[in-house]
Design a protein around this nucleic acid. Sequence first.
DNA 1: CACCACCCCTGGACGC
DNA 2: TGCGTCCAGGGGTGGT
Length: 275
Amino acid sequence: MPELPEVQRTCLSLTTALVGARIISVRVHRPEVVAGSTRKRDLLVGAEGISLHRHGKQFALEAGDGRVLLAHLGMTGGLCVEARSADLPAHSHVVWNLRFEDGRSAIMRFTDPRRFGGLWTFPDLRTLRLARWDDLGPDALTIRPEALSRSLRASRRAIKACLLDQRTLAGVGNIYADECLFLAGVHPSTEARDLSDAEIREITKRLKQVLRKAIQSGGSTLRDYRDASGQAGEYQRQHKVYGRGGEPCVACETTLETAQIGQRTTVWCPRCQDA
DNA sequence: CACCACCCCTGGACGC
DNA sequence: TGCGTCCAGGGGTGGT
């Protein structure tokens, strides 16, 4: 899925795409992707002056009058703005009609083949935060090492599993967890409580670094991911370990190892990431 | 409470 | 070409 960098790119591209836009109408093709009300008003019909907010992998469209629509993209979800075309692509679960101040029109589509993602409607941002974001850890892009240390020091779980836990920190998925641990030189199955303060500082630093670089490169497109303007990412070309099990380490040429850690395929270099 | 196994769903890659 | 199997970026739930 879209992890933090891909969600951030989606938000940035939506911000651009929605300048001067007004939502004219909405059509819900698959009501089960919307949690709660599918009333047109709750799905932002009539909204203008839309701004974007993100926490971890979730993001919200806030209308000028305060109404809020939360999106979570799951593994294959996407929200895009494009010209109306003759036939709608498959899995377009919710489609909005937009009109711009200059008279142009367009559609916004929520797509999600696997339907692990979804949309939630809220009366305002405060209610959204209370219901959905207060349970998440700090956003991975700005987390401080002390905050990470607090949630790790008592845990016997593997550091890889901790990084994937959105209550520990929000925004990291399988790709960036593996990339971060490689850059930090930490073995993914290290018990969290065994990490030194120096190692936690290094993990924090490398995590923010890899997320920033991925954002700059448009995120990682393995297959489906596109931002709201249809642009694919390029960061997959810079992956050091993710998807490279059995291949040589970019740093030392040792064969990269693969195992299931925290129910996810995990790849690491047995030499650079000492157990 | 902390942790883990399982399940939701579609589609692409690969082997026969 | 066609079919079966395996695997995939996430995370909620329910059990131990």
